[in-house]
Nucleic acid binder design. Structure first.
Lengths: 232, 232
DNA sequence: GTCGGTAGTTGAACACGTTCAAGAAGGGCG
DNA sequence: CGCCCTTCTTGAACGTGTTCAACTACCGAC
């Protein structure tokens, strides 16, 4: 439609540059329609028509309708990382850092609450490449875990030596729990989820501090052993 | 096909007795095919054909393919309750009671691991009536929570007075976590899930006992307050 | 016995996600 | 320019879950 020079705007991978703008066009159209109508109500035919391509062409770039979700997934992760940066720069204490990063994650997701909720079912399926535990999404997952690693590393918190290496992954798991709650949260503006974060963070903060307590050492060790056993 | 007397075998609700055996026939056929071929590979047409009815007739009894899952759900709950009974009769200590009931739940689910895993995605969708948190499944859910109430009530465990009323629901939530792990468990025979139960139960047992400890009182209270706030 | 209404049943039709054989576009190379 | 190969694009066709207007079977009332 629009006339443009030979080189792509983003100047990405030159080996696959040819269809790149078509790919982005389809992706952006899909994201828009998902937001406007919801996931189930957006048909592949509608996406193709609005993007001005054929149905089959959409399938050339995205193996299935679900794969379009993965696009959303990756995009959200990047936005989360970016919107968490100010918090990591500003805060020093563990609690505020964690709370800030969790809130930032929900901030990013909030505009898509309606349709994100619908598609999270796909993410829950173990066989799906969309599962946050799957190998296919290990990239975004590791990035997310690393983000919580930064939360911890940049903080002044004193953490039990045995707990420390496991903590980022545990915090990520807690974040998954927050997202799960958010998905089911029907309160206006998902305020309950905000309460969950604000309530759970001091609790986590406290528990992390308590993990160094003598009485709790055996429990801590027991729990960590279990986690190590269960990791695949 | 087969000749039978006027009264139904189960002699259930007389008001809706007429189509009851057709309903059961469709349900049983669906469950069998789900087990044999998996959920996605079983078509509504195949169910109808094998049951010897028309496709539309299956939809007369079950609003959607998903609703057939709910049937599996309810059935599993009943079986769980039944297979947990010996444990509740035999054991007196909290730990063994809890472990026994959790293992019983997985025992019931195990033959269906293949297809149950696939359909749990539907249960994760918040808008779905299949969600364990939804109003539609409040019946089975309450029954399940009550089961954990029995685990606690019949035990000799000493529990913090404030924690006690919340504990059955928390234990059910933990059970949901076990099921979630089981769904993703690819280890042969799902042995990892068994390890999870055997590892987590002593931990829970220990934490419940510790909840009465003075140092932990504030944390316990803080956590319980949060939970009460978040319940809808 | 006949009538009427409810419960049950049917199969064709619809919209959807997905596939695929066929073709078009583009570019390197003689 | 002509050739070939890869990349990209198309739209018809398939199988699926679901709907629905029409039909049949039953059963109580008159």
């Amino acid at each position: 439609m629009t006339e443009q020079p030979a080189q792509t705007t983003t100047a990405g991978d030159p080996a696959t540059a040819r269809g790149e703008q078509t790919r982005q066009l389809i992706r952006d159209t899909a994201m828009r329609l998902f937001r406007e109508r919801g996931y189930a109500q957006t048909t592949m035919r509608a996406i193709a028509q609005e993007a001005g391509v054929s149905v089959g062409n959409a399938y050339y770039y995205f193996g299935s309708k679900d794969h379009l979700i993965q696009e959303f997934y990756a995009q959200s992760q990047v936005e989360h990382r970016a919107s968490a940066q100010p918090v990591l720069d500003r805060e020093e204490a563990f609690g505020p850092r964690l709370a800030g990063v969790l809130h930032a994650g929900i901030d990013v997701l909030t505009p898509s609450h309606g349709f994100a909720a619908t598609f999270f079912k796909t993410a829950a399926e173990p066989t799906s490449p969309l599962s946050p535990f799957s190998a296919e999404s290990s990239g975004p997952r590791q990035a997310a875990i690393d983000l919580f690693g930064e939360v911890l590393a940049g903080s002044t918190a004193k953490v039990d030596a045995e707990l420390r290496p496991q903590l980022p992954e545990l915090l990520w798991l807690a974040y998954m729990g927050v997202v799960l709650y958010w998905v089911h949260d029907r309160s206006p503006g998902q305020t309950k989820t905000r309460q969950l974060i604000d309530g759970a963070v001091p609790l986590i903060d406290r528990l992390v501090a308590l993990s160094r307590l003598r009485v709790l050492r055996p429990v801590t060790r027991q729990a960590l052993d279990l986690i190590r056993t269960l990791r695949h």
